[in-house]
Design a protein around this nucleic acid. Structure first.
Lengths: 221, 221
DNA sequence: TCCAGAAATTATCAACTGATAAATTATCAC
DNA sequence: GTGATAATTTATCAGTTGATAATTTCTGGA
């Protein structure tokens, strides 16, 4: 008998089915859903949820785990550091993989909704970017420019900040598409290449002036 | 008698007090608050809310109106177009005013929460950026580069996209601070100048290559 | 075929929630 | 002071909600 035609699923299958369905459901409805609404949409009785999930929060926690799990490939950082390709090509390759992973309705909406509810949930993921990937990208562009990156705490902060601005623009495309419900261009590859070009050109050229910006900090106000 | 010591406020004052309090409250708690929680926090009875607001949704609508109202200064676009200053200076001036308006906990959190709930709410505001400000910024940088901006539908889209990436990085600082609860550098002026520098330098330099990106679209896949 | 055990549903509860009506309390003009 | 009026609270309700217990239905092996 095909599993899909069964009325009584194996416990493991049913749990997986509920979880997958709940991810789509919560992505659409946000965190204000009720357990009855979820059960009705899935076509099972509401108490059945409590056979597989201790309570509503337990279900949400498992949703977060499932959505964030395995969306981050540790190989990305190694590839970014691989100087056999130009920094432009490396950034294009990384951003192609990164956007493929995160420009997903469920991922974007659940990420934002969960962060709004409790920033702790997304902290680990964001820490990975902030502590590892961003310093790496800045350092690699600095190497491309043939300039020593400016040093000091304020310079480090500014460097991270510049990369944040660049990097977040791709995540933000997901926000525009799946939260604002705007249309975004469908040729993502074109946009990645154009933005990488603007970013690398700009950072290479302005890198020598960064020290100056720091020195002038606060002077103009 | 000072109004703050009164027990029975004038209707207009009470309505304003509830609305202001509710804005802070909803910014913190999100849209899952109950009318009792709001009333308790404010120190009034729950039915009192219904004297001033028809129902829960009516209160939310008035919150949105109050938060989004007058956060957008129509003079900004005119200033961006005023070529008596360099494009860098104009962008710095604009972004200083813009960030001052929107890097506010209530604004950021209610903007995101309401967009997540119903994208219609933020549509008008975002349309203003997309239709008016972004094309203007791109055109002004093109003029700075002394290059005719590339033409055609795809070029327009790409141009808007590049500016989206730049512009959104400032809004996104608010997301980082008030939603992710990350620390962001306190010297905003420094960041604005550095990012404007990277952006203008990069766009001026890569502008002549944009046509090439478009021509190559899809070729590399 | 039949039944033991697992899977799912029905029935139910206490607490919560948005909303309304009735009763109470403060304010102010006279 | 006093009473008319507006502001606020208390009491209350019907529908909802998360969760549990009791009951029923299905599945697969002997």
């Amino acid at each position: 008998m095909a599993k899909s035609a069964r009325k009584y699923l194996d416990a493991a299958d049913r749990e997986q089915q509920i979880l997958e369905f709940a991810i789509d459901f919560v992505a659409q409805r946000g965190l204000r859903f009720t357990t009855r609404e979820l059960a009705d949409a899935l076509g099972v009785s509401q108490p059945l949820l409590y056979r597989y999930f201790k309570n509503r929060d337990d279900l949400l926690q498992k949703i977060y785990d499932e959505v964030y799990l395995k969306r981050w490939d540790p190989a990305w950082n190694a590839q970014l550091a691989d100087r056999s390709l130009s920094i432009r090509d490396r950034l294009v390759r990384y951003l192609t993989a990164y956007t493929e992973a995160i420009l997903d309705e469920r991922w974007i909406r659940i990420f934002i909704a969960s962060a709004l509810e409790d920033p702790q949930i997304t902290k680990k993921y964001l820490g990975l970017l902030h502590e590892t990937t961003f310093p790496l990208i800045f350092a690699e562009v600095a190497a491309e420019a043939g300039v020593a990156a400016p040093t000091g705490h304020q310079a480090d902060e500014l460097a991270i900040e510049i990369v944040w601005g660049f990097h977040s623009s791709f995540f933000y495309m997901g926000v525009r598409k799946y939260i604002y419900r705007n249309t975004i261009p469908d040729d993502l590859d074109l946009i990645i290449r154009a933005r990488v070009d603007v970013f690398v050109s700009g950072l290479v050229e302005s890198m020598p002036r960064l020290e100056g910006h720091i020195a002038n900090a606060g002077a103009g106000r």
